[in-house]
Amino acid sequence: MIYHGNRFTLRADASPEQVEEALESLRNQGRVIPSVKSFVVGRDFGGEYEWGAVFVIEDLEGYWQYLIHPAHRNTDRVGLPVVDRFMSYDITDDADPEMGAKITALHQKRYDSDPELTQLVSGLGEYSGSAAPEKH
């Protein structure tokens, strides 16, 4: 299993409507993407971020299906413009020592095939973690 997590802080100028649209889009990902086995979206406590989401996915094939699903792309479109700081992480019980590199490669493949997504990500104040695009 792979637990894909996001932690984020929103821009100070994000309206309550924009915030709710972004959070609802994250919840919708969990409801409609077939490879998501369970999920949680909510406040992030005990750190430097305001919000978080975790999606449980069975394997790399399901992870890729999650990444390219239209519901995920919608969250990018409505959510990234209101995010200031973003951090992604993945936790897995898979014993493959290359799992981290494989997850990073999936994200990079997505960026390489979607210039609009890459542009949205470039507008973030800070972006780190397993889903962050490679710096060239």
Rank of each mutant, 00 (worst) to 15 (best):
F55M: 07
M87I: 10
R31A: 08
Y111A: 09
S128H: 12
V19L: 06
F86N: 06
V82D: 07
R7V: 09
L106W: 06
A53M: 08
V56M: 11
D114T: 10
R73Q: 12
R27D: 07
Y89L: 13
A131W: 02
F39V: 04
W51I: 00
D59R: 02
G52C: 10
A101D: 14
D44A: 10
Q119G: 12
P70Y: 11
Y111K: 02
E24A: 11
S113V: 04
N28R: 11
T92H: 05
G47M: 00
G125S: 02
Y66K: 05
G129V: 07
D93Y: 03
E134R: 14
W51V: 03
S128W: 12
E50P: 15
M99D: 11
E98I: 02
L60P: 13
R43F: 13
I103L: 15
Q18E: 14
T104N: 10
I91H: 07
V19D: 05
Y89D: 15
A101E: 15
E20L: 10
Q108E: 15
P133M: 09
D114Q: 13
M87R: 12
Q29P: 10
K109M: 14
T118Y: 07
V82Q: 02
P115A: 06
A14R: 03
D94T: 07
H136K: 15
A101Q: 14
E126Q: 10
T75L: 10
V40G: 09
G52R: 02
P115Q: 05
N6R: 11
L26S: 09
T104M: 14
K135S: 12
F39T: 01
W51Y: 14
F55H: 11
E48A: 02
P81Y: 13
V32G: 01
F8C: 01
M1T: 13
K102H: 07
F45R: 11
D13F: 05
D96N: 14
L67H: 04
A131M: 10
I57E: 02
P81T: 13
E58S: 15
I103R: 04
D13C: 01
V32D: 03
L67E: 04
S25L: 04
Q29C: 14
V56N: 08
D59V: 07
N6K: 08
G47E: 00
S25G: 11
N28I: 06
D112G: 15
M99W: 14
E134N: 13
G100M: 08
V19G: 05
Y66P: 04
H72C: 03
D13M: 05
I33P: 11
A71F: 06
E61S: 14
H107V: 04
W64G: 04
G125H: 01
V41W: 00
V121M: 10
P97V: 01
D114P: 01
F39D: 00
N74H: 09
S88K: 07
I57A: 02
A105I: 04
T75M: 09
Y89S: 12
Y127A: 08
E17I: 03
A95P: 15
G42M: 01
M99E: 09
P81N: 13
G125F: 00
A95Y: 11
L67T: 02
E116D: 14
S15C: 04
E61R: 08
G100Q: 09
H69C: 02
F86E: 03
A53Q: 03
G100R: 08
V36A: 00
